[in-house]
């Protein structure tokens, strides 16, 4: 992320206000030194309200707080960059290791439930959908993918399944592009058969978790890094409660359950690794 081009207008107390607001609403920790991030992410919101800069936006919200502004600030600061096949190894592992294991353990009538727990604009759930569609006959009926994000805007984008030219350039192999997406004006849109596999909804991981489980596989990647340890522990325990006892959890490459929640076993999955519950969590 570039920091050079953004001149900060934000006062130290303004930054502290935003930090406290984001932590209260989402439990996400904005470390000191992230002033540039706040500046860069909130500038469009300030401009859209005709305010001169981010400091003016913060002052307006501080003097008269409202739910909509709070939501928009949280969304702007919790929306993460994403791409197709981001860190591709977990996806390969899902198809080559996890899927055969699940198929062996389930009857053909049982649905396979997958949760993409911080789906951003939808690339992750649709990556999962297209891989399973290609690997598993009948996946369209059998696989149910829950896709959630804290941001209403991202959930709506996921539902639409529309991606700009720049977005489809980011890591989507051309053979999959032409098999699973079609042109829609200047954009590309995921085909209806894949969109039917994905149900998108808002979910704040520190709030109420989805009731669309129990899940066979959970993708919770590159999101725990934003939380403090007690919050990570709570999220992992509550996610565990929503998983099948023989389920699989994928975290980001820089994330681990180690030292956070000891009820998981790390197992190699191809060139990647996943986590499996060693005991169910009935208390959550």
């Amino acid at each position: 992320m570039s920091t050079a081009s953004t001149a900060s207008t934000l006062s130290p107390s303004g930054f502290d206000f935003v930090r406290a607001l984001v932590h209260r609403e989402s439990a996400i920790v904005l470390a000191p030194g992230k002033e540039y991030l706040v500046e860069a992410r909130l500038s469009p919101l300030a401009r859209s309200r005709g305010l001169r800069d981010v400091q003016a936006l913060v002052e307006a919200v501080r003097s008269s707080p409202d739910v909509e502004s709070t939501q928009l600030i949280v969304e702007a600061l919790t929306t993460n960059e994403t791409s197709w096949f981001r860190d591709g190894d977990p996806f390969t592992g899902m198809v080559q290791v996890v899927l055969p294991s699940l198929l062996a353990a389930r009857t053909p009538a049982e649905p396979l439930r997958i949760w993409s727990a911080a789906c951003s604009s939808g690339q992750e759930p649709y990556t999962i959908a297209m891989l399973l569609k290609d690997a598993l006959p009948g996946a369209g009926e059998r696989v149910r993918i829950s896709a959630s994000d804290i941001s209403r805007e991202m959930v709506e984008r996921t539902r639409g399944g529309r991606f700009s030219q720049m977005e489809v350039n980011r890591g989507l192999p051309a053979p999959l592009l032409v098999r699973h997406l079609t042109r829609a004006g200047n954009d590309w849109q995921v085909n209806p058969d894949l969109r039917r596999m994905v149900t998108a909804f808002e979910c704040n991981l520190v709030g109420t978790l989805p009731r669309t489980g129990p899940f066979d596989v959970v993708f919770l990647r590159n999101v725990l890094i934003y939380f403090d340890i007690p919050t990570k522990r709570s999220i992992l325990a509550r996610v565990r409660a929503l998983m099948r006892p023989d389920g699989w959890l994928f975290l980001g490459a820089a994330e681990s359950t180690l030292g956070v929640d000891d009820a998981w076993e790390r197992v190699p999955v191809g060139r990647s690794s996943a986590y499996r519950p060693t005991r169910p969590n009935r208390g959550a």
Partner: peptide, 25 residues
């Protein structure tokens, strides 16, 4: 293009990151 034998397809304009993503694939 894929039927003719191309392995990948990058549509202009693109960012250096997107280019590196394709090579990584």
């Amino acid at each position: 293009a894929l039927a003719a034998g191309a392995h990948e397809y990058m549509i202009k304009p693109f960012t250096p990151d997107a280019f590196a993503d394709k090579l990584s694939l």
